[in-house]
Design a protein around this nucleic acid. Structure first.
Lengths: 337, 337
DNA sequence: TAGGGTCATGCACACGTTTGCATGAGAGGC
DNA sequence: GCCTCTCATGCAAACGTGTGCATGACCCTA
């Protein structure tokens, strides 16, 4: 059986379908009694307006498309939670797509978004290159990038304040008395990595500590990468006493490599992560890390997008502050180290 | 500027818009030359068919709605990854909605799905009660429940084989020589909890071990719940030597409670979880647990839904096997225990 | 009582697609 | 040369909603 349409309601109420349309939208053209009467009938018959028909005539879909590399990435999941929450409050729906960092998949995703006429797109932590950025910019849909890894001035963005946060995290290690501080980054050199490395470097320089190239390890943002990079650092003749990691996943891998060699955290080595994933507090020991306000960043991305849609003027490039969360993976270095 | 429509393409190609429609869909009514010519023109002008217009006439939206309690829940995230992957392969899009277990939010979600005329709905790990189930069953959209907590025969479902998996997990502890084995469940007594408890009970009975009520703790599926329940177990005059937890989050909380008292895992206590969340391997020590094939369950839910849509006959209630993953959180009990 | 003004409602078109049916052009058989 | 058949294409309606404009009822004023 067909779903009830606006015309069915009109027949039941002995009015024209335009009156029903206006009544349901609360138009001031319709008398209050008619409005309540029609609304009652609509509710009784379980009427649901067709979003497709509406968007066909209004050319707005009340839908935003969200691209993540993988929703199984806890960072992305938290961001999407914030996005969906903010979208829901404004009666927007969220279409989710995983890119898996596969170029062909990215293409399909954008195409699907265009066909569905999403009102806007939010892309989180994209690592895909210039080609994709160009593709995105060609589509006429407003776009907000969240922690994007390819700077592009013409788009709106929400970013974490990488430099200041990394400097603070490194300073924390310096304050504890560490002098041999390593950094495990992301070998693909995305923007976050560059900025976090700069913060690390800046803190060391501020403390007149040397930047030793052998203390700069290269992971890939995953635990495996952190494990491998940490293993190399530990094989050095004079290993570091503290390590600042590009992100928590890298830190988890590093911690595993440390434990595998029978070393203790923080007695033998201090570790600092970045993100404050939910699991950071359950690591052994609980991980000192920089908290990214992931949900708020998601919410902010939605607000930024809606401003873009409404045409209201706003700051296009938003920076959110990170917050250092000190737990038990950091301590002063041992005397004999 | 308006997006190019099928009529714009028709004008460019000097044909009627119906010919364009058929050509793009590859109808055999249109000559091959015309098809390639029209497709070329459409590609050149960046034409994207309007999903809204199409779904208006076909009354199919190529969209499935997914309800999760929270996408930040790692279990839900993995499931959704599988869902989105399978959906993408069939050219379906996924609309994601978080219920946060709030009844009013549930209502809004279902309403939004109905308005968007989703072809089907997948609900994962729903804990909401009979009212919601009734609401769901009233909507005429096909529904597949994944690890649902309220048995309802009339709907399709994908479930983990709780009983067998729990029995196996408990048997693993029995095989290690444990005799005082506790279970930390979910106080809200959802279906998964009941089934897992039954598996635990069945294994103990098989080994002629007594079921001691003081060894049945009540968490709530979160780490806090596990922490509290474990604390009570440890306060017993004769604490257990092994604990089987309702899920990994509960196990993480239990491990924290154990560590807080200076006890060691697995020397003093063995712990088994359920889910095999990504983080289980990084716990201290890495957690022995039952793996749920979360992504495959998500994929299967999509296939089940599409069968439902196509009207093809299939098994409505699918059960997936769990797999015991033995890591380092379980060992034989100490002699003096 | 005629005219103007306000208010509530209806008419008809538009949005972009799919699809049943009609149409027109050839080709082939008688 | 006419009829029929096939093949490629066009016409027009339909899906469900929003909205500019017209319409009709009613009231008020002169």
């Amino acid at each position: 059986m067909r779903r009830a349409s606006i015309k069915d309601i009109a027949r039941l109420a002995n009015v024209s379908h335009s009156t029903v349309s206006r009544a349901l939208r609360g138009s001031s053209l319709i008398s209050p009694q008619t409005i309540t009467r029609i609304r009652q009938i609509a509710a009784d018959s379980g009427y649901r307006p067709s979003a497709a028909a509406r968007s066909l005539v209004t050319s707005r879909s009340a839908t935003i498309g969200v691209v993540v590399t993988s929703i199984a990435d806890p960072f992305a999941a938290e961001v999407v939670l914030g996005i969906e929450d903010a979208a829901d409050q404004r009666d927007y729906s969220v279409i989710l797509a995983n890119s898996n960092a596969q170029p062909d998949r990215e293409m399909r995703v954008v195409r699907a978004f265009e066909e569905r006429r999403v009102d806007g797109i939010i892309v989180t932590s994209s690592r895909v290159g210039a080609v994709y950025a160009e593709l995105l910019s060609q589509t006429r849909v407003p776009i907000v990038l969240l922690n994007n890894q390819h700077p592009s001035e013409f788009m709106h963005s929400v970013m974490i304040e990488n430099l200041a946060a990394s400097r603070q995290a490194t300073q924390h290690l310096i304050d504890l008395g560490h002098k041999r501080i390593a950094y495990i980054g992301d070998r693909f050199g995305c923007q976050s990595d560059t900025e976090r490395f700069n913060g690390y470097q800046s803190a060391l320089e501020g403390a007149s500590l040397p930047i030793r190239t052998e203390y700069v390890g290269y992971g890939n943002g995953t635990s495996e990468g952190g494990d491998a990079a940490m293993s190399e650092l530990l094989a050095l003749p004079q290993p570091p006493t503290a390590v600042f990691c590009y992100n928590d996943m890298t830190a988890f891998g590093a911690m595993r490599a440390i434990a595998a060699r029978g070393l203790r955290i923080p007695a033998d080595l201090s570790i600092v992560g970045f993100d404050d994933l939910f699991f950071a507090q359950f690591a052994a020991p609980p991980l000192t890390t920089v908290r990214q306000p992931m949900r708020d960043m998601g919410r902010l991305a939605v607000e930024s997008l809606l401003h873009l849609l409404a045409g209201t003027q706003t700051e296009p490039n938003l920076k959110m502050p990170g917050e250092l969360i000190v737990r038990q993976s950091t301590a002063s270095p041992q005397e004999n180290a």
